[in-house]
Amino acid sequence: MPRYEFRCRACGDTFEVNRSMAAAGEPASCPQGHADTVKLLSAVAVTGRGGGAPAPAAGGCCGGACGC
Rank of each mutant, 00 (worst) to 15 (best):
E26A: 03
A57Q: 14
A45H: 14
G59E: 13
A23H: 06
T47N: 12
M21S: 03
T37P: 00
A57F: 13
G59W: 15
E26P: 00
A22R: 11
A58L: 11
R49N: 12
F6K: 01
L40Q: 09
G48A: 06
A58S: 11
F15Q: 04
L40M: 11
M21L: 06
V44W: 15
V38N: 02
N18L: 10
G12I: 03
A22T: 07
S42R: 13
P27V: 02
C62I: 04
G63V: 08
F15H: 05
E16G: 01
P2V: 06
A35L: 09
A28Y: 05
M1G: 03
M21Q: 06
C68S: 12
A24T: 05
G67Q: 11
Q32W: 11
A22E: 13
T37N: 02
C30Q: 04
R7Q: 06
V17C: 05
G59R: 13
E5Y: 07
G63L: 10
F15S: 01
C62A: 04
P27D: 07
P31G: 02
M1L: 10
T47W: 15
S29I: 01
V38E: 13
A57W: 15
P27F: 09
T47D: 14
R3K: 12
R7M: 05
P54S: 10
F15P: 00
F6C: 00
D36Q: 07
C61E: 14
R9S: 02
C11N: 07
E16S: 06
G60W: 15
A35S: 07
R19T: 03
V38I: 09
A28I: 02
D36Y: 05
L40S: 01
A57N: 08
G59P: 09
R49K: 14
G33V: 04
A45G: 03
G59N: 10
R7L: 02
G48W: 14
H34G: 00
A24R: 13
A45S: 08
S20Y: 11
K39D: 03
V38M: 08
C8F: 05
P31C: 05
D36H: 04
M1C: 05
C66E: 14
V17S: 04
A55F: 15
A35M: 05
G25L: 09
A23W: 11
H34E: 06
C61Y: 15
K39N: 05
A45K: 13
D13Y: 12
R19F: 06
